[in-house]
């Protein structure tokens, strides 16, 4: 009832209203930060990524034509920033490559995550290649449809479905391996 729409805030921000930009920022800082956290499993990296994303959004705000949802547009920028972040960090690793086997206590965030579910999710996400991790993130935490995810990642909806299925199958295998080791 009292919420200003994203489009209004963007319009105001584009005309130089810093307050509107701040409002837009505070509306999306948590989803973007948590996206970064689950994609990188590290709060410092998540902060850097969040800053990259918002700077990019600020620079490109005038190019947002209001044709789709702003959140979708924002997360498509987040996707590019995230890929760039990984290319900077691991230039020789493809986004389809499986990362090294994750350790349950690999990052302080996992130690901090007192909740077992948070630990499980962070660990599970860490064990997936970036391309699959992103689909899991956008589908379950971003609550986007397959079509929206496909538009954001510039792939077909069938590719998104295939990536999600592969990711979940891989997670099942990983949990079986962990269970076997823990015995």
């Amino acid at each position: 009832m009292f919420d200003t729409t994203d489009e209004t805030l963007i319009s105001k921000a584009l005309s130089g209203n810093k307050r509107a930009w701040g409002q837009l920022l505070s509306r999306y800082e948590k989803p973007v930060y948590l996206y970064g956290l689950r994609m990188t499993s590290n709060s410092e990296d998540a902060k850097d990524l969040m800053q990259d994303i918002f700077i990019s959004v600020y620079r490109n705000l005038a190019q947002y034509k209001g044709t789709g949802k702003f959140k979708s547009w924002l997360f498509s920028i987040a996707h590019y920033r995230c890929i760039e972040f990984y290319r900077r960090k691991k230039p020789l690793q493809s986004i389809d490559d499986t990362p090294e086997v994750a350790d349950a206590n690999a990052t302080p965030e996992m130690c901090y995550a007192g909740d077992a579910q948070q630990q499980t999710i962070l660990l599970a996400m860490q064990s997936l290649p970036i391309a699959q991790r992103e689909v899991v993130e956008l589908k379950f935490f971003g609550q986007f449809t397959f079509v929206e995810i496909a538009e954001q990642l510039h792939v077909s909806p069938n590719t998104v479905k295939a990536r999600l299925y592969s990711a979940l199958a891989k997670l099942k295998d990983n949990s079986e391996v962990q269970y076997a080791y823990s015995r």
């Binding site: 489009e7 584009l14 005309s15 800053q51 918002f54 600020y58 490109n60 005038a62 034509k65 209001g66």
Partner: peptide
Amino acid sequence: WKVPQWERNTPI
């Protein structure tokens, strides 16, 4: 953090 100026002459 400092953000650059965007092209404000292009309204939505």
